[in-house]
């Protein structure tokens, strides 16, 4: 009799203890699924051979997104010489996009590269956010909802391109600041983002991502020797909506050519895969250990009880 009671108690406790786990288990089932991006989404093809570093795109972005006044005018090109921590300019809470100059050895003119959110097909920021603050829209934009963001800044860790920035200067209303492809004001109405519209050189070509890849390939194919044969972003981190073509190897113009070819989520999948395993195997395994480890005691107890029974 005593034995059954203790077993029932154990079960009860076990259930109480693992109920919460079971709840989560369900949700984690989603975790392993991946998100493929929208094939019909829009994108931008950036052609480094066309960009002249005029910073019109920066100015247009600042205006469109109502960002604060810059430290220097947008037609001040001394910003290209700014170096902080040995790094060229990057996005921050006042700028969603910046243009940098690269002096490439053996090239008689500098090259310029505009950076902004690349609007990944399977965005690392999105998959790493534990409150689902990011959304990849069918139009291709990766947008952000500041209403639910907790400010953990994991998205900034996860973004392979160092794009999301945090409003560190604010204690009461901080948020992530990042390019949203002008989603609310333009993209969702079928219009190109402000930077694209402002670019005099059409260094930024807006279009359907699939078309852009064909365009990029055509440009590379039909002007032999002008470009390196690679569209940066076609495959990088599972593909990005913003892609680049360049006349020099990408690592010479500040691109990280070591980012994984697969979506960032894939490197996390190993761990996500073990989660259901641990949840299901561990309880049985450890109960087994417990029974094995305490068998001798149980036998002793049993013997004792038996003896008492005989007396």
């Amino acid at each position: 009799m005593k034995k059954t009671v203790s077993r029932r108690n154990f079960l009860k406790g076990g259930l109480a203890g693992t109920a919460a786990v079971a709840v989560i288990q369900n949700k984690e089932a989603h975790a392993a699924q991946s998100f493929e991006g929208y094939p019909e989404g829009m994108g931008v093809l950036v052609d480094l051979t066309r960009c002249i570093g005029c910073r019109s795109c920066e100015a247009a972005c600042n205006k469109e997104q109502e960002l604060p006044e810059p430290a220097k005018p947008f037609d001040d090109y001394s910003v290209f010489d700014e170096i902080k921590h040995g790094q060229k300019r990057r996005t921050d809470e006042t700028a969603y996009t910046v243009v940098n100059r690269y002096d490439v050895p053996n090239l008689d003119h500098p090259l310029f590269r505009k950076i902004q959110c690349n609007h990944c097909q399977e965005p690392a920021c999105l998959t790493s956010c534990f409150v689902n603050a990011y959304t990849k829209t069918p139009e291709g934009a990766v947008i952000y909802n500041s209403k639910v963001c907790v400010g953990c800044r994991t998205c900034m860790i996860a973004c392979p391109f160092y794009i999301p920035t945090f409003k560190y200067s604010s204690a009461f209303d901080p948020r992530i600041m990042k390019c949203v492809f002008c989603y609310d004001t333009r993209l969702k109405d079928g219009k190109p983002p402000a930077c694209v519209e402002a670019c005099p050189q059409e260094a930024l070509t807006f279009g359907r991502r699939n078309d852009l890849i064909n365009m990029g390939r055509q440009r590379i194919r039909e002007t032999p020797g002008k470009y390196v044969e690679h569209i940066y972003g076609e495959k990088e981190v599972g593909g990005t909506a913003w892609m680049y073509i360049s006349s020099v190897p990408f690592d010479q113009v500040g691109f990280d050519t070591h980012v994984p070819k697969e979506p960032i989520l894939n490197s996390v999948k190993d761990f996500l895969a073990i989660v259901p395993m641990v949840l299901t195997i561990w309880p049985g395994l450890f109960v087994g250990f417990h029974l094995l480890a305490t068998r001798k005691e149980k036998i002793k107890e049993q013997e004792k009880e038996d003896k008492e029974g005989q007396v």
């Binding site: 430290a71 220097k72 001040d76 006042t94």
Partner: peptide, 16 residues
């Protein structure tokens, strides 16, 4: 472009 008569005040620098 924040230039010409709209130039940012001197000495002003971006926050952050």
């Amino acid at each position: 472009f924040y230039t010409g008569k709209y130039s940012p005040a001197k000495g002003h620098s971006a926050p952050g």
